[in-house]
Design a protein around this nucleic acid. Structure first.
Lengths: 342, 342
DNA sequence: CTGAAAGCGCTTACAG
DNA sequence: CTGAAAGCGCTTACAG
């Protein structure tokens, strides 16, 4: 049984603290806020009174006065999805240390909803906004006529003067190929997802650059685009090994695709990584760890992206805005699909 | 190019509206809030002035005065996880229609963090709290000395006088077995997950009740407990069909487990649902739809649970609290693992 | 029907 | 070093 520590602090006010400490409200305020002009002994008396009453300052009153609410709006477009959540968690984390809280809102990819929610958030005097997209493609800017700074995460703003944090997809593609080269592979193919996603093309682009640099060409001559599904991964892998039996590595556009690829290879009697090494993308744990063999993949460091977004937003709120896109680099997670490592 | 609609509304205040409409601030307030004692013509003038200035009332000031902030605290214990997100989305959804906003906070299963965050939220004058657990087992109550109502979602409070919304795990187990019986199966086994989870036992309990009602016994005599992984699903399925070749259906504790079961059965040359029908749990889309064959499973209606939690919280805030546990029933999603249905 | 006044809880010049 | 006063933007009795 823990001792009661939380009272109905709704009602404990600065006036109560001041009364108990025998000072004016003004002095109590200064004492608690660490203002210089307070005698040490007085400050102590106030602080101990505040503790005794378990006083929590009313953030609403504070915000009203200072014109800063200590809250930021988190506008996500994919609250159910896999990508926005780690970003939100990272942002939460970065704010958690300080005094900021996040007002959550899900716009579900709808521009009208977004506008409406942004206005609602502004009505709550948020000090800034983080807009989290559901894919890495550009999205329209909220504009510059807002009274607070905005940071775009995952999906960058199309306006280069906005501050955006994005995944380094090109670097991820390069990273995947370089790992495969390092593992001694040279006949590399790419099976990726939906060609309407910029991310798919960017990863391919990075991979091709790394191949070119090594003086190699892609097996099959071009990347295989399809959809972000296991089904497609399976089908594409079968096609690939039938047409190009010499292939010794497959770089995949996502872990789901890679999972399908692994299943198809196993069913064809090919060993991974013995015959063919496979690299995924996302480090989606359940997929990557449930796969046979476990999947080497690229983690986009989405939490880090979220933390950075929060940091940039706080900087902007404090009067030091940045603009332009900042790339967050992924990291390769090696598992058994490229090199056995029990 | 859309026309500019959002101004720096930070600075448009009720005083501005009143001035433009040629009335006092008090009258402007009454007009906008639909109070009765305002001449229709006056009200119109005020409303049009407000529109013209795109006035958004300052929620902080309003909250300070009314003692209601129009925000609720969302305390989750699993922001990265799969279960809390649909619940949050459902709650968001329910609030979205009204004037409530949710302040998001991730306590990560840590009681100290939770206490700290609850206090921070109370300092922001939240009107209520929704606490979302990461498993369906009971958790300690936040107590009754808080100044605002609390609703527990997913993980119920151990205090029966608190208001909790929980999944009907027993009903889900029953539902799974009844479906299998309906599909003509009678030699049913259960492969479930981590035995330290109450959910695992409750689902088994419901399944056993349904079997008993049909005058049947579980194949193998008892449910197979292990972990919530594909690995375990594969291993357990192999064991099961070796020891009890007559089994004609397997009820699984999760989609991940089911996924492993399906893989193992296929690799043993058994056909699903021809030889053995399989039912999962969670309706985790990527798992269930990526499986071969696609997986019949039970959707726990978590979004509905979130919506209900929000509804109950608003009721409590409005002075109509409920107490006790309310069960949210799942629904069976039929796919090809129990009956081919292209 | 309309408006002047008080007040929500706090902070910040400004006097003392 | 301390405190009385003004004010953040709004709503609600209370007079008129």
């Amino acid at each position: 049984m823990t001792r009661q520590t939380a009272n109905s602090n709704r009602s404990v006010t600065l006036a109560d603290v001041a009364r108990l400490a025998g000072v004016s409200i003004a002095t109590a305020s200064k004492a608690l806020n660490g203002r210089a002009q307070v005698r040490a002994e007085t400050r102590e008396r106030v602080v101990s009174a505040a503790r005794q009453l378990s006083f929590t300052p009313n953030a609403l009153a504070r915000g009203l006065l200072l014109g800063r609410s200590g809250t930021v709006g988190l506008v996500t477009h994919d609250l159910e999805g896999r990508f926005s959540i780690p970003i939100l968690a990272g942002a939460e984390d970065a704010f958690g240390a300080g005094q900021m809280s996040g007002l959550l809102t899900d716009a579900r990819g709808d521009t009208i909803r977004e506008r409406y929610q942004v206005n609602a958030l502004l009505g709550r005097s948020v000090d800034g906004l983080i807009v989290v997209g559901d894919k890495t493609d550009e999205r329209p800017s909220l504009g510059h006529d807002l009274p607070v700074p905005v940071v775009y995460a995952y999906a960058p703003s199309s306006d280069p003067s906005d501050c955006s944090l994005v995944c380094d997809n090109v670097g991820a593609g390069r990273m995947g190929v370089e790992h495969l080269l390092g593992c001694g592979r040279s006949r590399i193919a790419i099976i990726t997802g939906d060609p309407t996603y910029g991310a798919a093309h960017e990863r391919v682009q990075g991979a091709l650059a790394a191949l070119a640099q090594a003086g190699l060409e892609l097996i099959g001559g071009r990347a295989m685009y399809g959809s972000w599904t296991e089904d497609w991964g399976r089908g594409a892998a079968r096609l690939l090994v039938d047409r190009f039996p010499a292939v010794d590595a497959i770089l995949c556009g996502s872990d789901q695709v890679a999972r399908g690829v692994l299943d198809a290879l196993r069913e064809r009697g090919l060993s991974v990584p013995g015959d063919i090494a496979v690299v995924g993308h996302d480090n989606w744990k359940v997929m990557a760890l449930g796969a046979r063999p476990t999947l080497t993949t690229i983690d986009m460091n989405l939490e880090e992206l979220g933390r950075l977004a929060a940091t940039r937003l706080v900087e902007a709120i404090d009067g030091h805005p940045r603009s332009g896109r900042e790339l967050v680099t992924g990291r390769l997670i090696t598992r058994n699909s490229t090199a056995p490592q029990d």
